[in-house]
């Protein structure tokens, strides 16, 4: 049986009242995101940890050589595994205790990540082909959800994209039907070909009026907020996730029922997300650039460690 958080009426009322006054418990404005903290592994390629407030996920990207799918001989394989274990919160049950059936939230999260990153063609699958029909790279991104404080979707999309950008696959050469892989010491590993960086933004909707007003009325004063924390997410009456990249392309949008929202408000959300995506992309790029810089200048890295100890 899926248990939920026991949220009291007092908390419900308080959070809603606060939202009506444009105040959130952590001091943010309604459409403000929490600070994204990106950690990329300095020792290995393709391991990142992202925190968004207390929400935390890790993502590891690995590559191996596999046989391509028969119906797609010219494409590589890309898989994203998003199993949410009870590690992050007892709210999510492991596959064993829930009889192998995933909860609604879990299905939605994994489908959304799949659509946002895989279907939108962020990773160029054709570049993963080695020998058509017989060998290709199989890239796998494993998401590990470490702590839950709302908004798994947005953070997962950031984690997968940063991990893909950070990952380097071994360089190789084709000799007839043989593939020669080169060790990291022999040749520098090569990055994946990433076509664009889609990032998810999840908006939550709240209704200061009653249901009737929401459906029939035209006040359109539903409260909309971005990047909900745990309690806000549990109290939300509807959510919408959209995925967008720097080129102002909408890669995916899903508003799964919930509160009815006027089309103009939805357009505002999209516009707001398109403003945010630039900053976030810049931040991701600067973190990666810094990491690449440290790798090229190993001396500086060592010095930096000493400096950190001093302080």
């Amino acid at each position: 049986m899926v248990r939920d958080y026991d949220i009291s009426n007092n908390e419900r009322q308080f959070v809603l009242q606060a939202l009506e006054q444009n105040v959130r418990l952590d001091g943010r404005k309604l459409l403000e995101m929490r600070d994204v903290d990106i950690f990329v592994s300095p020792d290995e390629y393709g391991y990142v940890e992202i925190s968004l407030g207390k929400t935390k996920v890790a993502c590891r990207v690995t590559a191996e050589i596999a046989k391509p799918y028969e119906d797609r001989p010219f494409d590589g394989i890309f898989q994203i595994s998003t199993e949410i274990s009870p590690i992050c919160s007892p709210f999510f049950e492991s596959g064993l205790t829930s009889g192998g059936k995933q909860s609604n939230d879990e299905v939605l999260i994994s489908r959304l990540i799949e659509k946002a990153v895989r279907r939108s063609g962020a990773l160029d699958l054709e570049s993963l082909c080695i020998i058509a029909g017989s060998k290709c790279w199989s890239i796998r991104a494993d998401l590990h959800f470490l702590n839950y404080d709302g908004n798994f979707i947005d953070i997962s999309s950031i984690a997968v994209m940063v991990a893909l950008l950070h990952f380097r696959k071994p360089d190789m050469e084709i000799d007839g039907n043989n593939v020669i892989l080169f060790d990291q010491d022999q040749r520098n590993p090569v990055p994946l070909s990433i076509l664009h960086i889609p990032l998810c933004f999840t908006f939550q909707f709240y209704n200061p009026n009653d249901d009737e007003e929401n459906i029939k009325g035209n006040l359109n004063n539903e409260l909309i907020l971005l990047d909900a924390s745990l309690i806000e997410e549990r109290l939300s009456l509807g959510s919408m996730t959209l995925t967008i990249n720097k080129n102002k392309e909408l890669c995916q949008l899903v508003k799964s029922g919930g509160l009815n929202i006027d089309a103009s408000l939805i357009m505002n959300c999209c516009q707001h997300a398109s403003n945010l995506v630039d900053d976030l992309t810049k931040k991701i790029n600067s973190v990666l650039k810094h990491d690449a810089h440290l790798r090229e200048n190993p001396l500086e890295k060592e010095l930096q460690v000493v400096n950190q100890r001093d302080t």
């Binding site: 029939k216 919408m240 102002k248 392309e249 890669c251 899903v254 799964s256 009815n260 089309a263």
Partner: peptide
């Protein structure tokens, strides 16, 4: 919902330029 302009559900699974979205919705 009904005759209003309010969207109850919305699903988009492919790439669409943001500036075209409004026309699609209307």
């Amino acid at each position: 919902v009904g005759d209003s302009d309010k969207l109850n559900l919305m699903l988009c699974e492919d790439k669409i330029p943001l500036d075209k979205l409004e026309r699609l919705i209307s």
